[in-house]
Amino acid sequence: MKVLIAEDEPISNLYLKNTLVRWGYEVVSTKNGSEAWEVLRGSNPQWIAILDWEMPKMKGIEVCQKIRADSRISTGTYVILITGRDLDEDIEMGFKAGADDYLKKPFNNQILKAKLETARRALNL
């Protein structure tokens, strides 16, 4: 299963990438929302997209909105927003933008792994 990581913080990006590769995922890593959107637009496979909310050039929530507005990409993409935001209105905003799941930083690896397995099952339905 392919996983797209969009995380602008280099250490977090590398940590996520190494962890997911170790778990057997095929990972594409980007540093901002614009790069993530270009990867998604240029391909047609199923993706699990892990999008950091706060990034330069395009925020993760904006990428999420673009994904949901494009029917070619939307049906095969499961979006997990990661962020330090934890107010109810922020979580609601993320889901209204089309996120399938939400993970608060700092996150627990076992929770991340469980959310990725949920995403895999959802995409295989």
Rank of each mutant, 00 (worst) to 15 (best):
T19P: 02
T19Q: 13
T19C: 08
L20N: 08
L20T: 09
V21N: 13
V21Y: 02
V21G: 12
R22C: 10
R22I: 10
W23A: 05
G24C: 11
Y25G: 00
E26L: 14
T30L: 03
K31M: 13
K31G: 13
K31F: 05
K31N: 15
K31E: 15
N32P: 00
S34T: 12
S34Y: 14
A36S: 08
A36P: 04
A36D: 04
A36W: 00
A36Q: 04
W37H: 05
W37A: 08
V39D: 08
L40K: 07
R41T: 14
S43W: 02
S43Y: 03
S43P: 03
S43I: 02
N44P: 03
Q46M: 11
Q46E: 15
W47Q: 11
W47H: 11
I48G: 12
I50V: 11
I50Q: 10
L51M: 12
D52N: 06
D52M: 13
D52V: 14
D52K: 02
D52F: 04
E54Y: 09
E54Q: 12
M55W: 01
P56R: 09
P56I: 04
K57Q: 11
M58D: 01
K59E: 14
I61H: 09
C64I: 08
K66F: 11
K66V: 01
K66A: 12
R68K: 10
A69Y: 04
A69F: 00
D70H: 00
S71V: 06
I73Q: 06
S74T: 10
S74E: 15
S74I: 05
G76L: 02
G76W: 10
G76C: 03
T77P: 04
Y78S: 13
V79E: 04
V79P: 03
I80T: 08
I80D: 06
I80A: 09
L81G: 07
I82W: 00
T83S: 14
G84E: 15
G84H: 09
G84F: 05
R85E: 12
D88I: 07
E89F: 15
D90I: 10
E92A: 13
E92D: 15
M93G: 15
G94P: 07
K96G: 03
K96Q: 12
G98Q: 07
A99R: 02
A99L: 11
D101M: 06
D101R: 04
D101A: 11
D101I: 07
Y102C: 01
Y102K: 01
L103I: 12
L103A: 13
K105S: 05
K105E: 12
P106N: 11
P106W: 06
P106F: 07
F107H: 05
N108I: 01
N109G: 01
L112A: 02
K113E: 15
K113V: 07
K115E: 11
